[in-house]
Each structure stands twice: as C-alpha cells, then as structure tokens.
C-alpha cells in the first residue's frame, strides 16, 4: 500500500467561498441537490449527502453588543465560522465494515471508496456512518460519497476540492505530515490567543481509529454538525453477536420446552390452564406449567442476561 493520504481542513482560514463544493460536483459530475432557500446563514445545501460530497457550513455566533450611545444592547454577530466538511475516510470505517457486497473498499491510499458497479443499494452503510456522510441517492438507488478523488490520485493529481481551495483551508497530503502540520498550526493559533482552536479527528485513539480527513475547529464539533465522540459501532460487533446468539439459543430452548413440557396433555387437547385459569388460580395444568422447566429456564434466562451483561462490560 502506498502512503496513506488524507485531508487536513483548517477551518480557521476557510472563507466560505464554496469553491470546494462546486469543484467536487464539477469533477465528479454530481447532480444538484435541489434549489431551496434554507435561511440558515449562507448554507443552502444543508449537509453532506449522496450528491454533496463537500459541504460548507456557516455558523453565525452572536453576542450582545452595545450600539454606540444607544441604551439598548444589541445582539450582534461576533464571528462567522465556516467549515468545509467531507467524508472522514476513517481508519475503522463503519460503512466499509458493514457493506455486505464489498462495494466499499480501502484503496492503496488508505481511503474508503464505493465501487458504484458493485453497490446494490442495500443502504446499510448509510446509518452505519457515525458522521452521517454516505447516503443513498433517490432514483439512482446506490450509495455515494467522497472518493478522495481516487481517480485523480491515481493520475497523480490532488483532489479537486483541495486544488480549488484558494486559501489552503483544505490541505491534501500524506496523513502523517498533515498531522504534524496541524499540530504546529494549532499551537500557533493558541499562542496567538485563539484558545478555542482544537483538532478534531486527528487522534488514532478515537472511536474510528483516527480520521483520514481531520479538521482544525474553533468551537465544539457539534456546532459544525459533527459528532463530538463518534464511534465505529462495528467495534461492538462481537458483543452484539454474543447477545444475538444467546437470544437464538433462548428461542431454540423455549420452543423445545414448549413442545417437550407441554407433552401429552397438550396432545390430548387440554388447554394450558386446565380451563380454570380465567376463573381464579391456576388450574393443575397451569400450576404445572408455572413450575415447569420451561418456565424456570425462561426465567433463569431472563435473569441470566443480567449476568451476561456484567460479563461483557
């Protein structure tokens, strides 16, 4: 595998020009996302999706400001954050993990790419992504997302969005180098008094094993629409299967017991409660059921979950 390539998006220098959004659509020939005025600052595309692989967020933050010689304090804009979001190309990519067809794969550049000729549109990757990146396109039926311009990289070109970015807010390169550069940048910003500057997604010890596209943010990630502590849920998959296995066993056991214990009485057509259940107190058969192994097993099983639970913690 070639060197792992990635993005460092430094939102502190993003001017919100959306050149990245347009360049991505242009290069990848994506359809438009509809023409809806959202009244959410200058953002009318909302979020990443099947047809928007770069998305620029606009966050207006206000604080009370005194208009000169005016007694009424005015809420006025303090800062306008802009940030270009993209697929994170996770080290542990939930989308890739859960894809049943192998349409999603990891490239030689360490990126995560959908092969559109293999995707069958099962849609599983969509809710699996902890960042809400990949989506199924209506009408087309397949899942789409940023490829980190796999085709351009193969041709030795940098991704279209990074190429178009006038201020180098989007930096493309070997991930290790980018991480170093980002550390320096954040240190410099902090030294200049921007205490709020922080990196997001750069740590290999986070819930996705580190993002291949990470960010320098000036506020909490959720302000930008990013999850504060994303996790690739496949991390819990063994536990999930254990629980499902226990449930499957319970099904088998419960069904078996329903047959074995019910035995001849049921065969002869007597009802479980011996006809007296409804009129007060369990009938002999009913009482027998409540004491039966099936019932006790079931109860034990239900109780056992608590034990199991403790065990898998």
């Amino acid at each position: 595998m070639a060197e792992r390539m990635g993005f460092f998006t430094d939102t502190s220098v993003c001017i919100g020009c959306k050149a990245c959004e347009v360049a991505c659509k242009e290069w990848n020939q994506l359809p438009d996302d509809g023409f809806v005025f959202e009244a959410t600052s200058y953002d009318n595309t909302g979020m990443l999706g099947a047809s928007t692989w770069r998305h620029v967020a606009f966050i207006e933050q206000s604080r009370p400001v005194q208009v000169p010689s005016d007694p009424e304090a005015e809420d006025s804009v303090d800062r306008w954050l802009m940030s270009s979001d993209v697929c994170k190309h996770c080290t542990h990519a939930a989308c890739l993990d859960v894809c049943p067809t192998g349409a999603l794969f990891r490239t030689e550049f360490g990126t995560v790419v959908v092969q559109s000729d293999i995707c069958n549109g099962c849609g599983y990757c969509v809710p699996a992504c902890p960042y809400g990146v990949i989506d199924r396109r209506e009408g087309d039926g397949r899942a789409w997302k940023c490829t980190m311009c796999y085709d351009r990289q193969l041709g030795g070109l940098e991704p279209a969005c990074a190429k178009a970015c006038p201020t180098d807010s989007i930096q493309f390169g070997p991930l290790d180098e980018l991480r170093e550069r980002a550390e320096e940048r954040v240190a410099r910003l902090r030294a200049d008094g921007h205490e709020e500057a922080r990196l997001y997604g750069e740590s290999p010890s986070d819930g996705v094993g580190g993002a291949g596209a990470f960010f320098l943010l000036l506020d909490e990630p959720e302000v930008y629409g990013l999850p504060p502590d994303p996790v690739a849920t496949t991390r819990d998959l063994p536990a999930m299967w254990r629980w499902a296995g226990a449930a499957a066993l319970s099904v088998a056991g419960a069904v078996a017991l329903a047959f074995l214990n019910g035995g001849p009485g049921l065969k002869s057509g007597t009802s479980l409660n011996g006809g007296t259940f409804l009129t007060g107190g369990a009938g002999p058969k009913g009482r027998a059921f409540l004491k039966s192994r099936a019932f006790l097993k079931g109860r034990a099983l239900l109780k056992g979950r608590a034990l199991l639970k403790g065990g898998t913690r």
């Binding site: 438009d32 996302d33 009244a39 200058y42």
Partner: peptide
C-alpha cells in the same frame, strides 16, 4: 445548477431588531 443551488432565492439581510419590529422571522 451547481451555483444556483448554493443561493437559490433572492433574499434580504436585516438585523434582528428590525425584523422583530416588522414581525418578520428568518425565512
């Protein structure tokens, strides 16, 4: 399409106090 979708409608920008006075909400 790629440009039109980014700013699809004519809008006017106004400050919150004026909007409140005119009874206008965002959008």
């Amino acid at each position: 399409a790629y440009l039109a979708e980014l700013q699809p409608e004519l809008f006017c920008e106004m400050d919150p106090r004026l909007a409140a006075r005119l009874g206008l909400g965002n959008g």
